[in-house]
Design a protein around this nucleic acid. Structure first.
Lengths: 311, 311
DNA sequence: CACGAAATGAAAGATATTTTCGTCGCGGGC
DNA sequence: GCCCGCGACGAAAATATCTTTCATTTCGTG
């Protein structure tokens, strides 16, 4: 909330008014009548194109408006700033605000002829949205239960194929780093074969966006029947995979389209869930995890070339 | 391209990159590791309190940070501005944005005893931040160039090990779906062996957060020397990997800590870049990509069970 | 422990901003 | 019609600010 009223009062009267933040255009209009011709030209230019004027020096603005430096400074003073330098700063701020203000045009879908910059903005926005939705929709009770099971598991198997297979591997990599026995399976046959080995106290995690991927459901079913604790990470809490899941972790389903396949948006949510699982387990097993984390970090150090500088 | 890292900054490093508008905090974090101690102090002060620093002259900021004017100017240059004056302008803009926008949310680190709900919230927030920063800091010119190269490539190799290896696979999966010849390499030896086969018109992409992973740099160097178009996706635009990269795509570096390893935050940014590459290529090759996309979707349909409820 | 490269700050040099001061144009009074 | 005073206005000096140069210090290395 700005102190608009006070600003207008102060500026019209005495100098004690603090510099205007964003209500500059209004101020120009308010004060224009009391300005001389040259000053009006300057004020107009400033109100007209804040961004452009912010890029100009006092001399540049003087030339642009066909006046002199002194006039520019006088105008800045009249607008309530100590000098042109500060007006320019405010101008830059105003420009930035205007710029960011006209950004919400990214609700549209990605089109074939979108410029690359729009693609970046839209993708980033969408993934942010997916994260927010997933975080909001995540059942922390289920999550906590899954974490507890993982932290005490003798062994953990993770199933995922296609894009979800990478998420499964990501989780596995992380769990291994903190000393858990985890394995990712993307081969359906091997997954089932291994699932048979699971028993009570073990954990099986299935990752599938649709919740209908047979290759992932099968091993989870086997694990479930062998008495393992089963977890499903899926975008469809009512899908078949949940039949065999003790704990269901739901990921958000973002808009998808031709140029934005399901694999893309679902992956973001899945990874957030996976990260939560990892951090949760790391917390529970902190005494064991902390040394393991630094140990795995150290082990990699020699594979990195020397950087120019650094701590 | 020269093999002297310093040249990357000296030659065409600064001019082609437009000064950051609001992506300043991200830029600071990205470049901070490559800064000297004094410059880091300046950068920290700037990122810490944009509004406050915008009010300071170069001398003031030098005194505040206990350094000299020269160092302040050097830092401004490193951040991509012609001089301190312009940095200050951008700072004012950033301050205005922050003020008008939401309050800069408290970014406490994840603690061992955080309840699980906090973990979810913090992780989600952090990853959202990483996305925003990466999107803001991404050089769309470089991105477009990389897309063009990919769209016309005879063959594409992607290198990545560890967590970045999964990102490499993600990209490969996507590119394959739209009919490109792409392959991900996580075995350093095989990667080099294959890189030898590359030639002009081919594309090689290295994915490494630190930019110092020898296992990834080597194949990229070979590809570079064989005349292939090389792309580096890294969080450190001044790192060794960029020596052999025709196009550098920078991902944002988020804060990391014991419970939040680098692999976690870097992955989010890398995936955004990968998604952008994919969509960009899909746009360019739309006529070929569209049928390929639906074809691969159809091919998977039979592997999904009927859903219990719903369509 | 000396060497050289990189980092740093003091001060000179270049720009930008602010102030000073004189000119000019415009009404109004003589 | 001519003179006078008032204020706008700009040229240029004065000042503040920014940039560059260069000598010194620091740090890693052989």
């Amino acid at each position: 909330m700005t102190n608009d009223v006070k600003e207008i009062f102060g500026s019209a009267g005495a100098p004690p008014a603090p510099p205007a933040p964003a209500a500059l255009a209004a101020k120009v209009r308010t004060l224009a009548p009391s300005m001389t011709r040259s000053m009006q030209r300057v004020a107009e230019a400033v109100a007209d194109d804040p961004a452009g004027c912010a890029a100009l020096t006092v001399t540049g603005l003087a030339e642009l408006t066909g006046t002199s430096e002194a006039t520019v400074v006088r105008t800045a003073r009249l607008l309530g700033y100590p000098g042109y330098r500060d007006l320019r700063l405010a101008l830059a701020g105003l420009a930035a605000q205007q710029q960011s203000g006209r950004a919400p045009a990214i609700t549209t879908d990605i089109a074939v002829d979108d410029p690359i910059a729009d693609v970046v903005a839209k993708l980033a926005y969408d993934e942010q949205q997916t994260l927010a939705d997933t975080a909001a929709g995540l059942d922390t009770v289920q999550l906590a239960a899954a974490v507890t099971a993982l932290a005490g598991a003798r062994r953990t198997d993770v199933y995922g194929v296609g894009a979800s297979g990478l998420v499964a591997q990501d989780l596995t990599q992380k769990l291994l780093r903190i000393g858990l026995m985890a394995h990712a399976h993307s081969d359906p046959h091997l997954a089932v074969t291994n699932a048979v080995q699971l028993r009570s106290g073990d954990v099986a995690i299935a990752i599938t966006h649709s919740g209908t991927t047979g290759d992932v459901i099968e091993p989870l079913r086997v694990a479930f029947e062998r008495g393992a604790t089963t977890v499903a990470v899926t975008g469809r809490p009512d899908s078949p995979v949940t039949q065999y899941a003790d704990h269901v972790l739901t990921t958000s389903t973002a808009r998808e389209s031709e140029l934005r396949p399901a694999a893309m948006s679902s992956r973001t949510g899945q990874l957030l869930v996976v990260d939560c699982l990892f951090v949760g387990v790391a917390q529970r097993t902190y005494d064991a995890a902390a040394p393991a984390l630094s140990a795995s970090y150290e082990a990699l150090a020699h594979r990195h070339r020397a950087t120019r500088r650094g701590p």
